[in-house]
Design a protein around this nucleic acid. Structure first.
Lengths: 145, 145
DNA sequence: TATCATGATTTGAAGTTCAAATAATTTTAA
DNA sequence: TTAAAATTATTTGAACTTCAAATCATGATA
């Protein structure tokens, strides 16, 4: 007999482990030549309140060296511009270009579709239940590790 | 104003994108020298009904060449044994060793904790709602891509 | 000012992945 | 039956991702 826990786990592994490769295919299909790793860098730059190298690296949980390598490529490809902080010249701010925002738009649409499918057949009360459970897991990891 | 959809999306990105690095830390902490990629190969070998190279590669959605490289290392490290099918000698079956099962035990415990935290405060009826929504998303991707 | 701390980059090595070429074996069809 | 096609897996070469350690530049502190 299969418990709900096992079903959920199987779904998490099967679905979420592979969302990246699916979205990668979507981008490729639309002619955008960018890796998912690079998309996530752009997303982190957008979502972090102050997009310094350090903050973005922390958001992504990679080392600064790793991020520098990524950003070098993204600058070369025209997705990101570097700007030094004039009052503290150690800091570098990352700025997204227009084509970066275009890529993030596709990324957002993909995630919207995903979330919509997640929400299908669910009314608001139940959405809140789901959200509560996701907050639980989020909180759990923040406390635990 | 932040919509429930945005909150869910943020949680998905923040939590699920980083589960791997968290679990990797757990394994490292316990002195197990294995990458998460390698753990996932072991998991796929265990979960697939007939663990040939082809079936495991399909489960993981990587090419056969990629899997061969992984398996070469895992054989060298003592986690996997190769066995040829005697009636169809093109096929190779993968077999987990005892130390592979030990690693998967830690992996399972980690996932159990994760799922438990997900289920905290939720009664069975609500679990079913969550499960239904995960099935929705799973189905969505299977149909769409 | 000399030392320490902070923020970022560079370098070298290891790990991951793919596409294309190759190899071994089985199946199909002439 | 045997030649061609299909299946299953491996090897090879290149690109990408990541990290740790070394380095560099700048700022804070004593």
């Amino acid at each position: 007999m299969v418990s709900p826990k096992e079903v959920i786990n199987e779904l998490l592994v099967d679905v979420f482990n592979h969302i990246l490769s699916i979205e990668s295919g979507v981008l490729k299909q639309r002619g955008v030549k960018i890796s998912m790793t690079e998309v996530h860098v752009l997303e982190a730059v957008r979502n972090v309140t102050t997009p310094t190298m350090g903050n973005v690296a922390a958001k992504l949980r990679v080392t600064l060296g790793t991020l520098t390598t990524s950003v070098n490529v993204l600058v070369k490809k025209g997705y990101i511009q570097r700007e030094r902080d004039e009052s503290d010249r150690r800091k570098v701010y990352l700025k997204l270009t227009d084509i970066a925002h275009n890529v993030l738009k596709i990324h957002d649409e993909f995630h919207d579709e995903m979330i919509d499918s997640l929400f299908k057949d669910l009314d608001l009360e139940k959405d809140e239940v789901l959200m509560k459970s996701l907050e639980n897991i989020s909180q759990y990891f923040k406390n635990q590790y």
